[in-house]
């Protein structure tokens, strides 16, 4: 199945590898500001892809995925500062960061597994709103419990720069993370589980009737999506250096993950990249000088795009391609 998928998508894979190679030279040729914009595109792409593992593939839209950005960030930060300690982080910062990353991912995976049973019994808008609640509860707990340092703030240990500028280090970390998440999403989409998830997204009851283990699949995807979102949260937190509840439990993160997918094409692998690139370039570069108007213009553009292409840019392109092919084959 995988070999067949690799052969079928060989041109996309070649294009992706070229894109990764091009992205790898960005920090050497662009100004630091543009490298930071690249960082944001990579972070947003990674978040969009991690969200789509559950939302795009299985049809379970989460309105509160920022829960895992915040949880990953604080779990890693507290683990590095309190469990490993300043001395360990000074002597072996790379290992410390790697262990912090694993701790952040594990915390998100465990939290997702714990809430999965009650929360994934809900469908549609009920699940979406329940996730909003999970994010709110975690955010409040981080803020109110003194040991978590959410209101006071937490200074994260520095990670080694390997002679690179700080923005380049985080750019590469986010590039690696985005590529790994993309590879995982590709494997999932093209494996047996991906077919089952597609069936589930279309009609969960019928999928069960056909033998798709829907409960197991959605819990697996929820935990995987949470852990990967958590990993991005850990990297993002380190790029900030100092985090508070408000800087990592952000409602706009949750909403943007959905927007990237809607804009680029929900359930596709390229969609989140296209959506993230458009949104980040639009808000940070094109409209960067019109701060008083930029939310209005962004909103207006989003409405126009959703009306023009309800299945996102990739969905719209696929539809145009299919109708062109049909016309071509129907022609005498």
């Amino acid at each position: 199945m995988l070999a067949e998928a690799l052969a079928r998508h060989r041109w996309w894979i070649a294009l992706t590898l070229l894109g990764i190679a091009a992205a790898a030279v960005v920090p050497f040729v662009l100004m630091p500001f543009h490298v930071r914009v690249g960082q944001m595109i990579l972070l947003s792409t990674g978040l969009g892809l991690a969200w789509t593992l559950l939302g795009g593939f299985a049809g379970y839209w989460s309105f509160g995925h920022t829960a895992f950005i915040g949880l990953g960030a604080f779990a890693a930060g507290l683990f590095e500062v309190n469990a490993l300690g300043t001395e360990f982080m000074r002597t072996d910062p790379l290992l410390g960061f790697a262990l912090g990353l694993l701790a952040g991912m594990a915390a998100c995976a465990v939290a997702a597994a714990l809430v999965a049973w009650p929360i994934l019994r809900l469908r549609g808008i009920y699940f979406a709103v329940a996730m909003l609640g999970v994010a709110q509860v975690l955010s409040e707990l981080t803020n109110s419990i003194e040991a978590f340092q959410g209101s006071l703030g937490l200074v994260l240990p520095r990670i080694p720069a390997f002679g690179l500028r700080t923005e380049a280090v985080f750019y590469y970390l986010l590039l690696i993370a985005a590529v790994i998440i993309l590879a995982i999403a590709f494997l999932v989409k093209n494996a047996r589980i991906g077919q089952g998830l597609a069936a589930m997204r279309e009609d969960e009851d019928t999928a069960r009737m056909l033998g798709v283990p829907t409960e197991r699949y959605k819990i697996t995807m929820f935990v995987l999506s949470a852990a990967l979102t958590g990993a991005l949260g850990v990297i993002y937190a380190h790029s900030l250096g100092y985090i508070t509840t408000g800087s990592v439990y952000r409602t706009d993160f949750s909403l943007n993950m959905i927007v990237y997918n809607l804009l680029g094409g929900i359930g596709t692998l390229v969609g989140p990249l296209i959506g993230a690139a458009i949104m980040v370039l639009l808000t940070q570069v094109v409209l960067g000088s019109f701060l008083n108007l930029h939310m209005f213009l962004t909103g207006a553009m989003l409405v126009a795009l959703v009306v023009a292409a309800p299945k996102g840019i990739m969905g719209g392109l696929a539809g145009t391609w299919q109708s062109w092919r049909r016309r071509r084959t129907a022609a005498p």
Partner: peptide, 23 residues
């Protein structure tokens, strides 16, 4: 109750993938 956005072939294939003796 078809899976409307999936092709007819893939709709049927899902039955083959997950039913008795799937794979």
């Amino acid at each position: 109750k078809p899976f409307p956005d999936i092709s007819v072939h893939d709709n049927v294939r899902i039955g083959a993938l997950f039913g008795r003796d799937g794979r």
